[in-house]
Structure formats: structure tokens, C-alpha cells
């Protein structure tokens, strides 16, 4: 089985600070990593491979330095990586088009896995868009996956209800972070990952020409969160009573 995992290199959002004067996030000097939920997708791909056999290719669209992060996924157990070097303003439609072109270029692909969303922008668009461009079935928000030779069965978390569904291959599956705990690579796996291939494809060559972003990001600013900073200083019982009253008034408690 040929499995493709789409993984995105993101900045470590836990380290982002907002410049108090401009309200813009300060991104320089912040460590980059693979988006957490995409690592869950890689882990699930490895489990699929362990069960039914096959080959795992990691695809990423971004800057050339993503290669170092892709190596981590190869150390976990993916077999090869492809970094599609694309301009920084590539938005969802461009990225989905590029990934679809890459999947087609890879040839026979049975399953495409990705995280339900990336931890930096969390739009959740990529999986569904990619399935649309590839014109294959999609199973989103997967919390459990059982792969067989000719079909896959998944459990999906749809907020107010859960659904169990099955699909033949090829299929796109987006996973949630609850699906598994990504493994840590051993020292030996880290050492052997350096011999696994990482190819670099150019966006324009892959798409057969320049791709125009449909959406332009004009500005990104942190959202200020105002706090009420109320301190209840009466005796404990009275304070609790007041706090519960205030929370009810705010609609937090009903």
C-alpha cells in the first residue's frame, strides 16, 4: 500500500509572543517544528504500514529548510520525503493544488493522511480541499482507524455525534490528535534516517506554471484578551457565593 502523509512545518506556537506596540506576532527566532496533529497522521500511517505493508511518503509544502523537520518523520518510520518549495504567500487553494499534483506525480497512491488542521492557522481546509482536487472520498476527524488490504474503517468525531464509516482506497483521511500518541524515534532510527531520500520539487514545475493565491493575508494581529481582575476578599463562603453569582450573570454557569 502506498501511503502519503501531508505534514506542515510550522512555528512553535507555544513560543510566539505578541509585540505590545504593533500587536503583531513576533516570529523571528522562533523554533520550527512539524505541526503536532500531522505527527499523529504519520504515526497512524506507520501503524497502517505495520499491519498491511507498504511505503510511506511524507509531502510538505513550504520552505527548503523543512527538510530537517521531514527527517524527524523519516526517523519515526516514514520511508521518503518530498519538500515542495513554494512561496510564503501560498494559501490553502495553492497548497492543495500543489499537494494534489505531487500525489499524482507519485503515481499509485492508496491513502492520503493529514492532521485535521495545522496548529498555526487551524483552518482545517487542507484535507477536504485536497480530497476535492484529487476527486477521492474523504474521512475527516478520524479518531480510530482500522486498515485492511482493500478498505479502511474509521471512527469519526463529529462534535455532537460519532460516526463509523468505511471506504475503499484511494481515500483521504484526516486524523485528530486523540487517535494515537506519536512514537519517539530511537537513536538507531535517527541515525538510519539520514540514508532515506528527501526530494525537493519546485512549485512552479509541479503546477506547470505560477499559481496565483486567491486569498491575500493583509495583516495578522494578536487578539487582546481583557481580564476583569476581580479579587474576592470576603470570607470564603461569601466569596464563593459572590463568584458563583457573577459567573451566572456572565452566562458561564447556567
Amino acid at each position: 500500500m502506498n501511503i502519503v502523509v501531508c505534514a506542515k512545518q510550522v512555528v512553535d506556537v507555544s513560543e510566539i509572543k505578541v509585540d505590545p506596540s504593533t500587536k503583531r506576532p513576533v516570529l523571528s527566532g522562533i523554533a520550527k517544528k512539524i505541526s503536532d496533529i500531522d505527527k499523529n497522521a504519520v504515526e497512524e500511517a506507520i501503524r497502517m504500514k505495520e499491519k498491511v505493508g507498504g511505503k510511506i511518503t511524507v509531502l510538505t509544502v513550504g520552505s527548503a529548510d523543512a527538510k530537517e523537520r521531514v527527517k524527524e518523520l523519516l526517523a519515526m518510520g516514514a520511508d521518503e520525503g518530498v519538500v515542495i518549495v513554494a512561496p510564503v504567500d501560498s494559501e490553502y487553494s495553492v497548497v492543495a493544488t500543489l499537494l494534489a499534483a505531487a500525489v499524482k506525480k507519485l503515481g499509485q497512491v492508496d491513502a492520503v493522511l493529514c492532521g485535521e488542521a495545522s496548529i498555526d492557522l487551524f483552518s482545517g481546509q487542507l484535507g477536504p480541499r485536497l480530497a476535492g482536487v484529487l476527486d477521492i472520498p474523504q474521512l475527516t476527524y478520524t479518531t480510530k482507524l482500522t486498515a485492511e488490504k482493500d478498505h479502511v474503517t474509521v471512527e469519526r468525531n463529529l462534535g455532537d455525534h460519532a460516526a463509523t464509516m468505511t471506504s475503499p482506497y484511494p481515500v483521504l483521511i484526516s486524523v485528530t490528535k486523540e487517535i494515537n500518541t506519536p512514537r519517539l524515534p530511537s537513536l538507531m532510527q535517527i541515525l538510519s534516517s539520514s540514508s532515506k531520500p528527501i526530494r525537493e520539487w519546485k512549485a512552479e514545475e509541479l503546477a506547470g506554471g505560477p499559481l496565483t493565491p486567491k486569498i491575500k493575508t493583509l495583516d495578522i494581529k494578536g487578539v487582546p484578551m481583557s481580564r476583569k481582575n476581580i479579587v474576592y476578599q470576603d470570607d470564603l463562603d461569601a466569596s464563593i457565593h459572590k463568584l458563583v453569582g457573577e459567573l451566572a450573570k456572565e452566562g458561564v454557569l447556567r
Binding site: 530537517e68 527527517k71 524527524e72 526517523a75 519517539l184 524515534p185 537513536l187 535517527i190 541515525l191 534516517s193
Partner: peptide, 15 residues
């Protein structure tokens, strides 16, 4: 080296 950083990061996460 990048490999040494990968090792450090793996052990950091494990720890």
C-alpha cells in the same frame, strides 16, 4: 550537527 540536534530533541521530549 542536525543529527545531534535531532537526538537532543528526541531525548528532551522523552525526558
Amino acid at each position: 550537527t542536525e543529527q545531534q540536534k535531532m537526538i537532543r530533541n528526541m531525548v528532551r521530549e522523552f525526558a
